[in-house]
Design a protein around this nucleic acid. Structure first.
Length: 476
RNA sequence: GGCGACUUAGCCAAGUGGUAAGGCAGCGGUCUGCAAAACCGCGAUCCCGGGUUCGAUUCCCGGAGUCGCCUCCA
């Protein structure tokens, strides 16, 4: 089965054909580190992580770059206000970003280039664009001449007629007086020596425009043509449109084969954004008692990445319950797998269910990462597996097969095993004794004492459950 | 004003030209010393109006509503 993905450029789902068979070069627009990244930002990074994990699960070798924008107007303004250097100001946000990536189980990219480290490559790109007439200097700044790139607007499907300048209310009109045309955008912004963020260039001191960094770093690290470029939908225009214009004008080659855009996270009817002040960070959610696994599971598993997701904190509780169900089944299978369950052999109905779930999961994932549908398959397995185990109709082989299917799915979900298996799987001697005392009490029919011990263990984060096969426990 | 997306049970959500997966919540039951876990059972005029069709939630047209983008926001 081929992997099919939606391409914003063609506006349709098509088969992924990497430029180099077996390998995928992927560029991901990363954070601008002027503040903590919020869960809306992370929704995009999670979807991109899902994409990468799926490509890898299907045997492709992925080379991924995620940039860190560590110089831009907001950063400069805030650092200036705090009398800090750029690096001093951005360091804690960068650190926090990496902490959150790890908490959310997002695999690190192969490269995390920082804009400030690639100014040389950016200047070279600007020089080339000026030399070929695609860019012009004006009052110490350099602008891209949009008119020189006929394909402009192909990605965002906006044409010049439809664009009414300033409709979003986000532009500062002063900035545009030096330009030939309103659509033109800054490649290089004039500065002065000694500025907080200024580098020397053939055009004088200044700093790079935002769009430039992604073009320069993507081409530097991944080549002139890359397979997949990812980002939030809000980056389609103007950011990605401008990247295409710059890159293709410079190289004459197609910049990106497939554009992967992740829809927004909404909150109370609007987009979650730093500028709206309605954002929520992972740390805040964790302080309110939500596990990062539940956040990952919720942001990823219940809504397709191209659908807007309306975030409600309560929904995390539901996600956590749902994840628990998967984790409990994982534990049940793991315990029964090598156990003394009679082996049902090749005709084990659980093994058959496991295979069905696996096929369903893969087919859904191959179809534009339809994880909500894939989760349906997985939950079918859980229900069926539990029933078969309850009825004593599944054997160790079936459990092994079920566990394998879960494991394979979890190579993309990256939540079930972490939720199922505690990092500290051993009981301390004291805890073991408590468990033994409880067993003793139960055997003697002293249930109030047994219940008291169970409550005490729960206080310690240990859940005790009595089953037909005996008492079992797991950590919260 | 331009462009685009979306509207499916209390909530989230998948999906199909032949009357609709899954999860969460709820109710009833089974199991259990109790609990937990689990299982079984119960829920949808698929936003509205028209059209095409033997048949539309699914295609087309119109409408309503929600949301996004329209020059530095993931």
């Amino acid at each position: 089965m081929p992997i099919r993905l939606y391409n914003s450029l063609t506006q349709e789902v098509g088969v992924l054909h990497p430029l180099h068979p077996g390998r995928v070069h992927m560029y991901t627009c990363g954070p601008t580190v002027h503040d903590r990244a919020h869960i809306g930002n992370f929704r995009a990074y999670l979807a991109e992580d899902l994409l990468r994990r799926h490509l890898e699960a299907r045997g492709l070798k992925v080379e991924q770059v995620m940039n860190i924008t560590d110089v831009d107007d907001k950063i400069i303004a805030k650092a200036t206000a705090r009398r800090q250097t750029l690096a001093e100001f951005t360091a804690p946000f960068i650190e926090a970003f990496f902490t959150d990536l790890k908490r959310l189980g997002i695999q690190p990219a192969n490269h995390f280039p920082r804009a400030t480290e690639y100014v040389g490559a950016m200047v070279a790109l600007v020089e080339q664009l000026v030399a070929t007439g695609h860019a012009y200097e004006s009052e110490g700044s350099v602008y891209f001449r949009v008119e020189s790139f006929p394909n402009y607007g192909r990605l965002s499907h906006l044409d010049a007629k439809g664009l009414s300048a300033g409709a979003s209310g986000r532009i500062d009109s002063d900035e545009y007086e030096a330009k030939e045309a309103v659509r033109d955008f800054a490649l290089w912004k004039r500065g002065t020596e000694g500025d907080l963020a200024a580098w020397p260039s053939p055009f004088g001191w200044g700093r790079p425009g935002w769009h430039l960094e992604c073009s320069a770093m993507a081409m530097e690290l991944l080549g002139a043509s890359i397979d997949i470029h990812c980002g939030g939908v809000d980056n389609k225009f103007p950011h990605h449109e401008n990247e295409i214009a710059q890159s293709e004008s410079a190289t004459g080659k197609p910049f990106v084969r497939l554009w992967f855009h992740v829809e927004h996270l909404l909150v109370e009817g609007g987009k979650m954004a730093k500028s709206q002040g309605n954002f929520m960070t992972l740390t805040t959610l964790m302080e309110r008692g939500h596990s990062p696994l539940a956040v990952r599971y919720h942001l990823l598993g219940n809504t397709h990445y191209r659908q807007k997701l309306h975030f409600r904190e309560e929904d995390l509780v539901g996600a956590s319950e749902s994840l628990d169900r998967l984790a409990t089944f994982w534990r049940r299978c793991a315990a029964a797998q090598g156990g003394d369950l009679k082996t049902a052999g090749s005709g084990d109905p659980l093994a058959a269910a496991a295979q069905r779930a696996r096929d369903g999961f893969e087919a859904a994932m191959d179809d534009d990462l339809n994880l909500p549908r894939a989760m349906g398959s997985l939950h079918d397995l859980v229900r069926e597996g539990n029933r078969l185990l309850d009825e004593g109709r599944a054997g160790g082989d079936g459990c092994g097969a079920a566990l394998l299917s879960l494991r394979i799915a979890d190579s993309r979900l990256a939540v079930i095993e972490r939720a199922a298996v505690s990092e500290d799987p051993q009981l301390t001697g004291e805890e073991q004794q408590a468990l033994a005392r409880r067993e003793e009490a139960r055997r003697k029919g002293n249930f109030s004492k047994a219940d008291r011990i169970r409550d005490q263990l729960l206080e310690l984060g240990i859940v005790v459950e009595d089953t037909k096969e005996g008492t079992r426990w797991h950590r919260l």
